[in-house]
Design a binder for these strands. Structure first.
Lengths: 333, 333
DNA sequence: GTGAAAGCGCTAACAT
DNA sequence: ATGTTAGCGCTTTCAC
């Protein structure tokens, strides 16, 4: 910047004014400065400016997700990015792999870089460690999963309700032996979906005592194994509710291997790519990751703009998409 | 930091030393400083430090991809992140949507934030605008597509070779009426894949003059329409090579709508999620986005560590995965 | 309309 | 083993 000022024959403050579009600079001076900046390939240093700037904003956001290599996270990420773009805000993303230690490290790495706000899919038991940062005024919005040990904004799917919808869909078609295959109970959304499943069966008057409920599945392989075991029993379920997209895919593989994909109903929570092109199509309760990301970013920016309303939970509705697998009738009535 | 120093009863430099793990501090002092930092919830400001630090590194990387909401980009992103994690480097990601203006804006936004290196899937005609930055010593590695108007490291799939492999696979099964459905020719990889397709047919002695070659497809919808049109002709192709995953999916939809998915062969470039679960499975020439991301990150870090060898192009091999759709025989010989 | 001086939070270079 | 001073590139404050 000194160089630019020297070349343009003005003071550094004038260069600063031109770059930031501040008033009170003559058109001729602006032109001179612009020219000098171009010939020197000058790029202003945002961080240096932020050090002194009144609002102290870095125009940077931190996004923490399960893995950036995951369709749900990708859609959330994209929506956040789109919302940030218009405000000149850049987005840091980090994958957590359901590892609480990584969550804390990633948060700390972002905080050291002075992100203006944090959007996170939390994986640790408690987010109490974020309390000081929250007090300091950094907006923190939780997506997909709600925080524990701390009160802050959250944007989530209606997990229990969505699971109940999926379950009702199966019960209405006459299924009574419905199995639940879900993620680890440490994950809040898994608990919610499990609850929605069981409560809906209760409402429908189906005894849940002897129904197969398998937890702790978090990848295709474990889901496939669990489904193979379940389907090989003499009292195999006539319908399966899978609480997560990787589990859905694992179950699908098991069904295909056993040639049971046309006689066992399946409804998955969260959409799966190409779900409409397999045979039968996979019926799912779809989440809206795009909306979740957009709303989360909006909350962060609203907070940054001074919104100090009480922390709120925004619920994004799910949507049942019938594609065939969920409409298969029970084998015997 | 001043506050921490005051509370611990030491000078700021000592606090700095403790935080950066520099030697020559007594264990007792370290403990005092740590304690003070914890009670004050002190987070060091990385940017402030970088302003003065000798190497001027921000421990930040910029990644530019087509869209973070895309399996290929997601895998690259994840691999880059994994490579960066061990070095304490955070990753900025930005989506370009094949928009050259966005590319320049995103690059500029990252440069203003003083990223240590740039990894990008370029979309603009020429990257000559990056020359000053390159001279300044910022490592820039191109992934997926090679740069134009500038010489720098690149990590790419063997596009022409992969396309030739796919084409050979079809020709060897007796196909002569093979169609090419590809992306816009402005995209370098599309041109390469098209070239590989045509050259392989030439080698096999198949006249390419009358074969359907459709360019300019870049989403499912346009690919589906093009395929529908092609398949409705009296001289419909017996096999299709699609040069990109979204195109592959669009073609697949068209084949299904016409009930032709069992009598028209299809080989796609780039893998598609769940490709093995549709019927028939989709034969593809798979890229290795994970390896591309990893190698690109390694190049950036090697440059940062002082490697000043001539810019190199790293070619990541593709792999033919037979799943059924590519092994369909021609309808009549 | 413009510039000089001070200082943001930190680290480098040199004390001690 | 620890502290002091200067200064990174910018913006603020205030004077001109």
């Amino acid at each position: 910047m000194r160089h630019v000022a020297a070349l343009a024959g003005v003071g550094v403050k004038t260069v600063s004014r031109v770059i930031n579009g501040e008033p009170n600079v003559s058109a001729a001076t602006i032109a001179k400065v612009r020219e000098a900046a171009r010939t020197l390939d000058y790029q202003p240093d945002l961080h240096a400016g932020n050090l002194r700037r009144a609002d102290g904003r870095t125009r940077t956001l931190g996004l923490l997700v399960g893995s950036v290599d995951n369709p749900f996270a990708g859609a959330v990420h994209r929506a956040v990015e789109d919302a940030a773009l218009g405000r000149g805000v850049a987005v840091f993303a980090s994958s957590l792999d359901d590892d609480p230690d990584r969550e804390q490290e990633a948060v700390s790495a972002f905080l050291r870089r002075r992100v203006d706000g944090l959007i996170l899919t939390t994986v640790s038991e408690s987010q109490a460690y974020l309390a000081p940062e929250l007090r300091r005024g950094t907006p923190i919005v939780f997506v997909d999963r709600e925080p524990a040990g701390i009160v802050s904004d959250a944007v989530v799917s209606d997990n229990a309700e969505g699971a109940a919808t999926a379950t009702r869909h199966l019960v209405e078609r006459g299924h009574r032996r419905v199995a639940y295959l879900g993620d680890r109970l440490a994950i809040q959304t898994a608990r919610e979906r499990r609850r929605g499943f069981l409560e809906e069966l209760g409402r429908a008057g189906v005894a849940t005592r002897d129904l197969p409920v398998v937890d702790g599945l978090h990848d295709e392989a474990s889901a496939r194994r669990a489904a193979l075991e379940l389907l090989s029993r003499p009292d195999a379920p006539t319908a399966i509710f899978s609480s997560q997209n990787l589990v859905t895919i694992g179950v699908l593989r098991a069904l295909r291997e056993l040639g049971r994909h046309h006689d066992t109903a399946l409804v998955g929570f969260d959409d799966v790519p190409l779900a409409d092109l397999v045979e039968p199509g996979i019926t799912v309760v779809a989440q809206d990751p795009q909306a979740i990301g957009r709303l989360a970013a909006q909350r962060v920016f609203a907070r940054l703009d001074g919104d100090d309303a009480a922390p709120a939970r925004t619920i994004v509705p799910t949507r049942l998409i019938e594609r065939g697998s969920g409409e298969i009738a029970p084998r015997e009535v």
